[in-house]
């Protein structure tokens, strides 16, 4: 066991896989010599050499396309897109190519690629360093979408993603790289070293894709969250003084619907929290599925707490970011219903 923040845990996952599997290669903008703008690949080039860990041209479409080619050859590329906001030039390669290759070739060709990318706000990054575009990818069949909320999960899920034979989009909420941010921007951040989930096994382990985690058991209401919002939801529930059952989805596709349904049937109420914009956000999918499968058990309308339907505005970081107070109000509202 070692104390790791999320950056170190993610680094460790790639380190383990580079060591275990000669087919693992890591590349992306600034990831080689420098080790990435968030330092997630620090030291890997030195350890595994320039042919397995290297810098890439600033061409996200090219990065994805070459990763697909390498995947077809039989390698396991792990590529970094510097910010989720810059993934769109790679969109065609992801959506039309990586996601459908297995299907259109009758199972003859596939590309087991992992696309890592820092996402989310809370860092004063403005509209091009704060986005949460997960729903854009969950809508695409053939892709898996993962968003961890802590170092232990980040490492285990990333190893599972790298070993997965399908393309996986792995979003890393950058606001919680260094500590579990609960949305209180005016309080000092507690580092991962002070949190039990900052204790990470050194070697190889997997956390299966498609398995949610119940981070707090409760009887009154189910809260569905992922990434940074897992921590904000816990803070919001504490503020509301409501006995909430908080579920960290961890993987959006495939979704652990059984875990969600069991919880909502128990509590009869549901609040969904995500940072991404509301309209057609992943919360809409969650609402639909909960309604389809738990309708008779619901005692109040499901409520969503999300980012507003605007681009992320630089000066209004905290007006935009869905903080604990908004979660609290949502919880009180569903409890009234």
């Amino acid at each position: 066991m070692a104390t790791m923040n999320m950056i170190q845990a993610i680094n460790s996952a790639m380190d383990v896989m580079l060591e275990r599997d000669r087919g693992t290669v890591v590349f992306g903008e600034d990831v080689g010599y420098f080790g990435g703008v968030f330092r997630c690949t620090a030291g890997l080039q030195k350890k595994y050499g320039k042919e397995r860990v290297f810098d890439a041209p600033i061409a996200e479409g090219g990065i994805l396309a070459t990763a697909i080619g390498m995947g077809v050859y039989g390698l396991r590329p792990v590529v970094e897109i510097q910010f989720a906001d810059y993934i769109y030039p790679a969109f065609d390669q992801l959506v039309s190519e990586a996601a459908r290759l297995r299907y259109r070739s009758g199972g003859e060709f596939w590309a087991p690629i992992t696309v890592r990318s820092p996402c989310g706000g809370g860092i004063f990054g403005g509209q091009t360093h704060s986005q949460s575009p997960e729903a854009v990818f969950t809508h695409v069949c053939g892709l898996k979408t993962v968003i961890p909320s802590n170092p232990v999960d980040a490492k285990g899920l990333l190893i599972a993603a790298i070993e997965d034979d399908d393309p996986v989009v792995f979003f890393e909420p950058k606001r919680i790289y260094n500590g579990p941010f609960e949305g209180y921007h005016d309080r000092p951040l507690v580092p991962w070293s002070k949190h039990p989930l900052g204790e990470v096994p050194d070697g190889y382990y997997r956390i299966e894709l498609g398995k949610a985690a119940i981070v707090r058991e409760g009887a009154a209401v189910t809260v569905l969250a992922y990434g940074t919002m897992v921590h904000v939801a816990q803070a919001g529930a504490a503020e509301a003084g409501v006995d909430a059952e908080i579920i960290d989805l961890r993987t959006l596709v495939p979704l652990d619907i059984d875990c969600i349904v069991a919880s909502v049937k128990k509590t009869g109420r549901c609040v969904i929290v995500h940072e991404a914009t509301k309209t057609s956000g992943f919360g809409a999918e969650l609402m639909a599925q909960v309604q389809e499968l738990c309708f008779a058990h619901l005692e109040a309308p499901i409520v969503r707490v999300t980012g507003w339907d605007t681009p992320y505005p630089h000066a209004f970081e905290w007006e935009y970011f869905p903080g604990p107070d908004r979660v609290k109000r949502a919880l009180l509202k569903v409890m009234e219903g």
């Binding site: 681009p311 630089h314 000066a315």
Partner: peptide
């Protein structure tokens, strides 16, 4: 700010 606080410096 003519850009209404929306853009990164």
């Amino acid at each position: 700010d003519r850009l209404k606080g929306r853009q990164l410096p």
